[in-house]
Computed example of a mutant assay.
Amino acid sequence: MADLEALQYPIGRFSSGNSYTFEQTQEHIAAIAVFPHNLTELVGKWGDNRLDTPYRPGGWTVRQLVHHVADSHMNAYIRTKLALTETVPTIKPYDETEWAKLPDSRLSIAPSLVILSNLHQRWVAVLDPLTDEQLQRTYFHPESQKEFTLSEVLANYAWHCEHHYQHAYQLALRNQWV
């Protein structure tokens, strides 16, 4: 069996505390823009057997993973808008593990794929015209007791997109589904 760390972090862990150039942030926005299409292409036609397969031992199922990404990115979109309209707002953390246990995590993935497609369209519409100065706006995360710039947040969410895409893709490779 593959190393558990590699299964959990197929592209490695996100490295926080970095600064990003305007050009790097534009690449992160582009990654966020294409993610819903890529994810839908990969898992959109999978049946229940595949969707209810955990991507790693002790991990979420692909179904839970898709719903998690929708939950996470909805929060990220709201946090982005807060950072752009308030001075260092304190964001509301949430327990993603508990959210993944709620009844909506057992629904078809179709609603979450539609949410992601529409949400990312709106999110990118907010992000595309931002200046470098606006990308330096921050919010405060009370769990880590840190301020995060939007440029770092976008790097994190570009990573988050690829991180979870690779969970599903690597599972598909291991099971010869692709």
Rank of each mutant, 00 (worst) to 15 (best):
Ile29Leu: 09
Ala31Ser: 13
Ala33Trp: 04
Phe35Leu: 09
Phe35His: 06
Pro36Thr: 01
His37Lys: 06
Glu41Asn: 10
Leu42Gln: 07
Gly44Glu: 03
Lys45Trp: 12
Lys45Leu: 11
Lys45Gln: 12
Trp46Thr: 10
Gly47Val: 13
Arg50Pro: 07
Leu51Tyr: 01
Asp52Pro: 05
Pro54Leu: 14
Pro54Asp: 12
Tyr55Phe: 14
Arg56Ile: 13
Pro57Ala: 03
Gly59Phe: 02
Gly59Asn: 07
Val62Ala: 01
Arg63Gln: 01
Arg63Ala: 00
Arg63Pro: 01
Gln64Ile: 01
His67Trp: 02
His67Arg: 02
His67Cys: 00
His68Lys: 05
Val69Arg: 03
Asp71Pro: 03
Asp71Asn: 04
Ser72Ala: 15
His73Ala: 05
Met74Gly: 08
Asn75Leu: 01
Asn75Pro: 00
Tyr77Phe: 15
Ile78Cys: 04
Thr80Glu: 02
Leu82Cys: 03
Ala83Lys: 04
Ala83Thr: 12
Ala83His: 13
Thr90Tyr: 15
Lys92Leu: 14
Pro93Phe: 05
Tyr94Trp: 04
Asp95Thr: 04
Thr97Lys: 11
Thr97Trp: 09
Leu102Lys: 14
Leu102Arg: 10
Leu102Glu: 15
Arg106Thr: 11
Ile115Ser: 10
Leu116Cys: 01
Ser117Gln: 11
Asn118Arg: 15
His120Phe: 03
Gln121Lys: 15
Arg122Ser: 12
Val124Asn: 05
Ala125Asp: 10
Ala125His: 07
Ala125Trp: 03
Ala125Gly: 04
Leu127Cys: 08
Asp128Met: 14
Pro129Ser: 12
Leu130Asn: 04
Asp132Val: 02
Gln134Asn: 09
Gln134Asp: 06
Leu135Val: 05
Arg137Ser: 03
Arg137Asn: 06
Arg137Trp: 01
Thr138Ser: 01
Thr138Gln: 14
His141Gly: 01
His141Asp: 01
Pro142Val: 08
Glu143Cys: 06
Gln145Asn: 14
Gln145Ile: 07
Gln145Thr: 05
Lys146Thr: 03
Lys146Ala: 02
Glu147Arg: 11
Leu150Pro: 07
Leu150Met: 10
Leu150Cys: 06
